[in-house]
Design a binder for these strands. Structure first.
Length: 206
DNA sequence: GAATCGATGATCT
DNA sequence: GATCATCGATTCA
């Protein structure tokens, strides 16, 4: 396994980080000890107070506080009462920003992902397993207990009960670079091309 | 295959 | 009380 991405990777402009995350490997050790990994194929960049679609757009609140903190931590929240979304905090400490991980292509632990999703591993497509932020969190067994978990080595683990470990590794990006498109499922700032995808995969949401 | 719609709870006004 | 960075079941074709 190559060297994990370190905190300095995330301590940069949110859009730059989002672009460069496409193709990286996401490896998750669940609270149950199961290990799964996927290649990131779809992300969205959410900036701070100048991005109307961002949870940080109205300044610091109990929920958005994590986005203003140091980079390389998980921001996990519940949406529509039933789905979790995984974000990675970006920018320097004090500046808000995060990248939403919207889809991964399963690389290992496919059977465990299918079991967690309640699908038959034989007939489920990669897209069924982990395309879409809610599906992805389900397949990776991530819930809001993981909020605030460090995703990079060298930081003190927050030792949240019932959580595991997330690590990211450099990977092969798309040949022509990631493609920028409008973000999905939002109402504000829909003109911004801040969704980045690997166009060569069938494992995309939306 | 495309369109529609309900579930369900934290967050913010 | 309205909103929401979603998903899956259902309906119609």
């Amino acid at each position: 396994m190559p060297t994990p991405l370190r905190q300095i990777f995330f301590a940069r402009n949110t859009i730059t980080v989002a672009r460069e995350l496409v193709g990286c490997l996401l490896q998750v050790t669940g609270g149950d000890g199961g290990v799964v990994a996927g290649r990131i194929v779809e992300v969205e960049a959410y900036e701070g107070e100048n991005d109307p679609a961002s949870h940080a757009s109205r300044g610091r609140t109990p929920r958005s506080e994590i986005m203003f903190g140091p980079p390389g931590f998980a921001y996990v929240y519940l949406i529509y009462g039933m789905h979790h979304c995984l974000n990675i905090v970006t920018e320097a400490d004090g500046t808000a920003g995060a990248v939403l991980v919207r889809a991964v292509e399963p690389v290992s632990g496919r059977e465990l992902m299918a079991a967690r999703r309640g699908l038959d591993p034989g007939s489920a497509s990669d897209r069924d397993l982990s395309a879409g932020p809610g599906r992805l969190c389900r397949a990776l067994a991530i819930d809001r207990n993981w909020n605030g978990l460090p995703l990079v080595p060298g930081l003190p683990d927050s030792e949240q009960p019932g959580t595991g470990q997330i690590r990211l590794f450099h990977g092969e990006g798309p040949p022509g670079g990631p493609v920028a498109t409008p973000r999905i499922g939002i109402r504000r700032a829909t003109d911004r091309l801040q969704r980045f995808i690997d166009p060569s995969t069938a494992c995309l949401s939306g």
